[in-house]
Write a protein that binds this DNA or RNA. Structure first.
Lengths: 341, 341
DNA sequence: AGCGCTGACGAAATCGATTTCGCAATGTTG
DNA sequence: CAACATTGCGAAATCGATTTCGTCAGCGCT
């Protein structure tokens, strides 16, 4: 029922090809004709059929965001990421299609590639390194530009946008060291993602630079399968013969939980125990005391991911694009100078 | 470069039509052939071209979400809404395309309709009533199914999914009345959206049912153009000759800000002043004291919106679909029994 | 044998744009 | 003035699927 290019053409007394060429501003249409066409297009409100264009031009001006992770675990990040991606994409007349139900399923990614319903793909949360490499190869074979996010991928041939987690953990650790802390607890994940790896490295570096010996018992592996693993981690720290005076928790929610647990245990924060989180979720600003944390701009990462992807799509840059963004330290009330000793 | 239906057909020694019919499980293909086709499809990983299908079938199996509001103002809601919509859509083999850069621009909505790149549209945040009606008519003319969200639209011909703001404000007000409050402040928006209208109605109803006279001076219109309008509203309440003992703020962020302001003013919450918010954002749970608020499940609204939209698309239901969802009261520490008097 | 019917398949039209190529009408040059 | 270039346009092919319609073989029935 909508108006087609044919309708337009017959109304103008020219051929469809001429209309098409006029609208795409080709050289072999006279200025006069172009004007006539554009005028009528405005009057009739003609809009070309997306499907027909896509089919003929073999591109869709759309990019896909594959969320490769349980959404409820990364909500805060997505909240920033998705608008960031959409806004940047729309600047370049691209649009964003969301795929949230294909977590870890390479087969579905392959189908997505072959259906050609997007020109490029952003994968949020790459799986473990080996799977990620396989996934990337698959997409490369299908000739589908792609960028991973927000974890770096330890492979030189793969494009990603990541936050500088070494720098983030280092900044946090340094901050605590400056406050006089020497026994700094560090919660890490048992899973072997680069994120964990990097943060641990940052922690180690900061200690080393300050000449503080690394104490393995101060590093606790979280058991993310446990229902309330925040409590578990917190207890492991406080059960140590000589408990830390400051603890870096792996995420803000865990740290926020730790604030309550500390209060329940009769510990004052930060006088008796300094607590820091990671990620800079919104809630971290309104706890009592406010949480010291490190923040990565998800919107900025999204923006950069789109820009990288557009480059890959246009085939400008040669080879993979890898970005590591600085993070920002928010030193707030939950960390303070070490008391006594 | 990808495999086409023609490749498949010649590999199998049948015609493209037969392959297509086999894949779409038509009756006029023998079981034996269907099996052969399916087997080869699996082997070759054939996936039909989305563009070609869309063109021929005149549908895309995609729905659009038009975010008709400054994103940073509705982040918390979108965080829940988008995954809710995407998840439900994907259940029915639909996907979600995001449009965030066309706020209030009817012309762009029209283009979207005419390009036929989506089968239906969800509009998040309808504009003022008259514009909404115009927008809806425009889409109806273009034969584009659509649903508004999360505000009700005061027009019987328009489909929407909304939260029960009358009930929400009523529940909050009742809650405060039960706690012994009689002078209950109510912050409202100057803009004339149904949301504000409904909440005010709920507030009035609760007062009326309790036999409490409505006091115009206890109702303050927020000046959302002011930089820190939370402060402005708070001061207006406390400057009253006889200040309220409890206040309903229009949103959680404002209420959270009010918690600080109260503390600064030397008021204890809830002993000296009860404070309630609205929306149930995540941060509301971690303030000190935690905020009493009302929560609407954005995910659930998204789910319902998709379901309504799918019905409109399939043409099952006749006429518009209107849903009003109950909201949930979270009575927390920021509201307490009225002291003295 | 003749008729109609059914089951299985393929040829060709179709969706609506873009792009290639050819052609006619001009303009330019030696 | 002939030869050649340039300009502006249209006919037709193309993208890759779906759908309509026609064909033909095989079958049962009289």
């Amino acid at each position: 029922m909508p108006i087609t290019i044919e309708d337009l053409a017959s109304k103008l007394g020219v051929s469809p090809s001429t209309v098409s060429k006029a609208l795409n501003d080709r050289a072999d249409v006279s200025l006069r004709t172009k004007e006539r066409v554009r005028k009528t297009v405005r009057e009739l409100g003609y809009q070309p059929s997306a499907a027909a264009r896509n089919l003929r031009r073999q591109r869709t001006d759309k990019i896909g965001l594959v969320v490769n992770y349980p959404i409820h675990m990364v909500r805060d990040f997505l909240t920033e990421l998705i608008p960031g991606i959409a806004a940047r994409a729309e600047q370049s007349e691209y649009h964003l299609i969301l795929y949230t139900a294909m977590a870890g399923n390479a087969e579905r990614v392959k189908s997505l590639c072959r259906s050609r319903e997007v020109d490029g793909i952003i994968i949020a949360w790459p799986p473990r390194a080996s799977e990620t490499v396989a996934l990337s190869q698959l997409m490369t074979q299908e000739d589908m530009p792609h960028v991973f996010l927000p974890r770096r991928v330890p492979h030189e041939g793969i494009s990603f946008v990541a936050a500088d987690h070494i720098g983030g953990a280092k900044a946090l650790t340094r901050h605590l060291i400056c406050l006089g802390h020497r026994r700094i607890g560090f919660e890490r994940l048992p899973e072997v993602y680069e994120t964990d790896f990097d943060r641990h490295a940052g922690y180690c570096q900061a200690l080393a630079e300050a000449g503080i010996a690394y104490q393995p018992d101060l590093v606790v592996a979280a058991d993310s399968s446990a229902v309330d693993y925040a409590t578990r981690s917190f207890r492991l720290f406080s059960a140590l013969p000589e408990p830390p005076t400051a603890v870096l928790f792996f995420t803000d929610p865990v740290a926020i939980r730790a604030l309550s647990l500390a209060r329940q245990a009769g510990l004052r924060v930060p006088q008796d125990l300094s607590i820091a989180g990671y990620d800079g979720i919104l809630s971290s600003a309104v706890t009592e005391p406010a949480l010291t944390t490190v923040w990565q701009s998800a919107a900025e990462m999204g923006r950069l991911a789109v820009e990288s992807l557009l480059q890959l799509i246009s085939g400008e840059g040669n080879g993979p694009i890898q970005h590591t963004l600085p993070v920002k330290l928010f030193a707030r009330g939950s960390t303070g100078a070490k008391q006594g000793g």
